[in-house]
C-alpha cells in the first residue's frame, strides 16, 4: 500500500494542488549538504563540478562531488541553488540519496531520474516537477567532470540535443522541457514548441518522444 502523502501548511498563491509535503518542507527549511557562501564554495576541493541552468530561467544549480577512486562511490555531494522551494528540496534530497549508505556508485548515480527524487519527497505538485530536474542534471555534469579530470573521457555520458523538427530546429530537449511543463499530448507540445507545423514528417518521432518523456518523468499511464 502506498502511504498517503501528508501536506504541509505552506502554500503559494495560484490555487489548486499547491501544497508541499512535510518531507519537502523539511528539506526546504533545512537543506542538507549545502555549501554556504562563495568563500566556502571556493575553498571546497571537489573531484567534479557541474553547473546547469541560469538565473534567467528561474533556476540555476551548482554541484560539487567527492568520489572514492577505488570504489567509485560518491563520498560527498555539495550544492548551491538559485531556485524555488521545489528546487531546493529536491536537490537536498538528491544529495542525501547519493551519499547515504556509504555513497552511491557513479554508474548508478548516473541513472537517477527526477521521478526517483520525487518519490523520496513523497510527492511534488505536478506543476512543480519542472523545478526538480536541475539537480540530477547538475549531478550528471559533475560526474562527467570527474571522468574528464580522471582521464576517463570514454565514460562521459553526452546529453547533446537531437534536432527533431528540421524546419524549426526543435530538439528532443525542447520536447522534454514541454513535457515537464505539463504537456501531455502532441497538440500541447506543438502549442509550446511549434513542432511539426511545417515539418510534418517529424510527427511520429515526436509522438514517440513525448511518450518516452512522459513515462520517464511521470511513470507509465
Amino acid at each position: 500500500m502506498t502511504k498517503k502523502p501528508t501536506y504541509a501548511d505552506v502554500k503559494t498563491k495560484g490555487g489548486k494542488g499547491w501544497f508541499y509535503t512535510d518531507v519537502v518542507k523539511e528539506h526546504f527549511f533545512k537543506p542538507r549538504n549545502l555549501l554556504r557562501t562563495e568563500e566556502e564554495a571556493k575553498k571546497y576541493k571537489a573531484d567534479g563540478v557541474g553547473i546547469v541552468g541560469s538565473p534567467a530561467c528561474g533556476d540555476m544549480m551548482k554541484m560539487w562531488i567527492k568520489v572514492d577512486p577505488k570504489t567509485e562511490r560518491i563520498k560527498e555531494c555539495k550544492w548551491q541553488t538559485f531556485g524555488c522551494a521545489s528546487a531546493i528540496a529536491s536537490t537536498s534530497m538528491l544529495s542525501m540519496m547519493v551519499t547515504e549508505k556509504g555513497g552511491m556508485k557513479l554508474d548508478k548515480a548516473l541513472q537517477i531520474k527526477p521521478q526517483d527524487i520525487v518519490k523520496r519527497l513523497v510527492d511534488l505538485p505536478p506543476r512543480k516537477f519542472h523545478c526538480s530536474v536541475l539537480g540530477d542534471k547538475a549531478l550528471r555534469e559533475a560526474i562527467n567532470d570527474y571522468f574528464k579530470k580522471t582521464r576517463k573521457e570514454h565514460r562521459i555520458v553526452k546529453q547533446g540535443a537531437k534536432v527533431i523538427d528540421k524546419q524549426l530546429n526543435v530538439t528532443d530537449k525542447d520536447i522534454e522541457e514541454a513535457v515537464l511543463d505539463g504537456a501531455t499530448t502532441f497538440e500541447d507540445v506543438q502549442k509550446k514548441t511549434k513542432i511539426g507545423v511545417h515539418d510534418k514528417s517529424c510527427i511520429p518521432e515526436a509522438e514517440q518522444l513525448i511518450r518516452f518523456y512522459r513515462e520517464k518523468y511521470f511513470g507509465p499511464d
Binding site: 505552506v10 533556476d59 538559485f82 531556485g83 522551494a85
Partner: peptide
C-alpha cells in the same frame, strides 16, 4: 536580486 521569490515567500510565511 540573486534569489527566487517563492523561496523568500515561503520563508516569510514560516
Amino acid at each position: 536580486l540573486d534569489i527566487e521569490g517563492e523561496a523568500i515567500m515561503l520563508y516569510m510565511n514560516k
